[in-house]
């Protein structure tokens, strides 16, 4: 229906966004690919020239690499599981006729406003600290030995912090979706004698599927790049126990000053992110129209 004139104006309007994003994607990526085939170490400026696949070989055969992949997946899947399941629970609860719903909603959404380094510092020192944290106070109250969470369960502790930040986001999107569910349908199901569980299973859950897909998509985008929470709490340790892929690359680049190696890691990370992206986009694309 659009006339030729509006079509060409529309193209003009799309162009700036597409062009800047294309440059933003292609220039750093091309440079990363280039560096990944070069000897380039800031600690050893004399070394230079083409490295072939040596950087890749070095990065991929590093035992820390597979551990970082496992940790990355554990963070993404762990946080998704906690925030989606917990988010459904919280959303169902807030959706009930409760007193002070507005205030409850404000309290629940709050962690989403907290910047990652603050979230990490608060959990590290206020909550999980083995000497002065609330968790230690509770343990002592029950006569138990306080746990040094970041030393004993580093990855779990990080998943906990990140899940705390993202559960509110999931809960609120799911709540909005719940509130758009037709009340009459619910009542009809109730009158027909459907149990609470089957109402949830066959009515509420299918209704929320679209919202759940979107929560998964958006959270995955951010969870693949978890960084500040690790930097502030465990710094990737002990050993590589809580190092994810971004953090491993950061270590190579800034701590070892190995630009070539970090670039090879970067290319690997981009490839993995794209594999994840293709799967996700397929799933979302199916669910979005």
């Amino acid at each position: 229906m659009a006339t030729r004139q509006t079509a060409s104006i529309a193209r003009l309007m799309r162009l700036p966004a597409i062009v800047v994003l294309f440059i933003w994607m292609i220039v750093p990526l091309a440079m990363t690919v280039y560096f990944s085939f070069r000897y380039y170490n800031l600690l050893n400026p004399a070394a230079g020239g083409w490295a072939g696949f040596e950087n890749y070989q070095y990065f991929l055969t590093d035992p820390a690499f597979w551990q970082a992949i496992r940790n990355t997946l554990a963070i993404v899947l762990g946080v998704l599981a906690i925030s989606v399941v917990g988010g459904i629970g919280v959303a169902l609860l807030i959706d009930q006729p409760i007193f002070g719903q507005g205030l409850v909603r404000i309290l629940v959404i709050s962690p989403f406003f907290v910047m990652p380094p603050v979230a990490a510092l608060v959990w590290k020192n206020m909550i999980l600290h083995p000497g002065y944290g609330v968790a230690a106070d509770i343990a002592k109250f029950f006569g138990l030995q306080p746990v040094d969470w970041f030393a004993s369960y580093p990855l779990f502790s990080i998943i906990l912090i990140v899940a705390w930040q993202w559960l509110p986001f999931a809960a609120l999107i799911l709540l909005t979706s719940l509130q758009s569910l037709d009340g009459e349908q619910k009542e009809a199901a109730e009158m027909d004698g459907a149990s609470a569980f089957s109402r949830f299973r066959y009515l509420t859950l299918p209704h929320m599927s679209r919202a759940i897909t979107i929560v998964i998509l958006i959270e995955t985008i951010f969870l693949l790049g978890v960084y500040a929470e690790i930097l502030v709490t465990t710094n990737g340790g002990p050993g590589y126990a809580s190092t994810n892929l971004p953090f491993l690359i950061y270590r190579a680049a800034l701590l070892n000053q190995d630009v070539g190696g970090a670039a090879a890691g970067g290319v690997v990370a981009v490839i993995i992110a794209n594999i994840v992206a293709i799967f996700l986009m397929r799933a979302v694309g199916k669910n979005l129209d």
Partner: peptide, 15 residues
């Protein structure tokens, strides 16, 4: 556009 957000920031830090 959305997929450009999947690019890990650490991967392009040096460039």
């Amino acid at each position: 556009m959305l997929s450009t957000k999947m690019m890990p920031a650490a991967a392009v830090l040096v460039p």
